[in-house]
């Protein structure tokens, strides 16, 4: 297992944002955490990334328990788990060029300098569909899709074992979303990292995930292989989520059900 989360609890004051979650992600697997705002999925992701320490329970990344190591070791462990955020422009330092943005993590992994480093950066960017013309640009000069590719390049430069994708396409247009989703599928096939996909968009989840955990009120209320979850949802909340996915026409609106506030 790349990631094993056991009995994870994170409280903020009296609020139990994550209230006892167990999940594990195997190498190369895509595990999707589905939930709405306030479900605790973002807090879960931040614990996995080592950005916050859990109140109790354990997060084991690549065999190392994040609770049992020093903050210095935790800092280095973080490099094995990277993240891609929802808003690509907010996740890139506006004062750095694309080249510097990708070179920063690249240098950490390879230790290269100068021309060699530049070559590595160019190679990675090309793999993600960006040319050398972008090297000297700043993030605001890129479209959303291009910026998200840079964010991906930056996250992948360390060759992480696990990539947390936090709503990676929800800020993008449909046509661009398709490009990024295809890219994510290609990278995975190409001996890439395992994905922990955080999303509320079930169509995206269906498209990418191998297993799905449905989160509600800080707990995983259902966990199943993707096919099974979408074909035969077991939990009421999962069914409600699936019923909310738009696109089945006016008849699906079923006004007779009424509207609960």
């Amino acid at each position: 297992m790349i990631l094993s989360v056991t009995g994870l609890v994170k409280t903020f004051g009296a609020v139990r944002a994550v209230d006892g979650v167990d999940l594990s992600v195997a190498p190369g697997e895509t595990y999707a955490v589905v939930g709405e705002s306030g479900s605790g999925k973002t807090t879960l992701a931040r614990c996995v990334l080592g950005l916050i320490r859990p109140s109790s329970g354990s997060v084991v990344v690549d065999g190392a328990d994040t609770a049992k190591i020093s903050s210095g070791e935790l800092r280095l462990l973080r490099r094995r788990v990277q993240i891609v955020f929802q808003n690509p422009h907010a996740s890139l330092n506006p004062r750095m060029t694309i080249e510097r943005l990708v070179a920063e993590p690249m240098r950490i992994r390879t230790g290269s300098k100068g021309a060699a480093l530049r070559e590595e950066v160019v190679a990675d960017l090309e793999r993600l569909g960006l040319g050398t013309a972008h090297l000297s640009r700043y993030p605001h000069e890129l479209s959303g899709g291009q910026a998200q590719r840079v964010a991906l390049a930056r996250a992948l430069a360390l060759r992480p074992r696990l990539l947390v994708l936090d709503e990676p396409t929800s800020a993008l247009d449909v046509s661009v979303q398709a490009q990024i989703l295809n890219l994510l599928a290609d990278l995975r096939a190409d001996d890439g990292p395992a994905y922990l996909l955080i999303s509320h968009d079930l169509a995206v989840v269906r498209h990418l995930a191998d297993r799905v955990g449905v989160m509600y009120g800080g707990r995983l209320v259902e966990e199943a292989p993707a096919e099974q979850l979408f074909d035969a949802p077991a939990h009421d909340y999962t069914r409600q989520l699936l019923d909310s996915v738009p696109g089945r026409g006016r008849a699906s609106m079923d006004l007779s059900l009424g509207v609960q506030p």
């Binding site: 449909v174 046509s175 661009v176 979303q177 398709a178 490009q179 989703l181 295809n182 599928a185 968009d201 079930l202 169509a203 995206v204 269906r206 498209h207 979408f230 699936l242 996915v245 696109g247």
Partner: peptide
């Protein structure tokens, strides 16, 4: 193209048509 780019619950997994 736009509809082809849309991931759907009722469609088989696979590559999406991007524009």
């Amino acid at each position: 193209a736009l509809l082809g780019a849309l991931p759907r619950l009722d469609a088989p997994r696979g590559r999406l048509d991007s524009i």
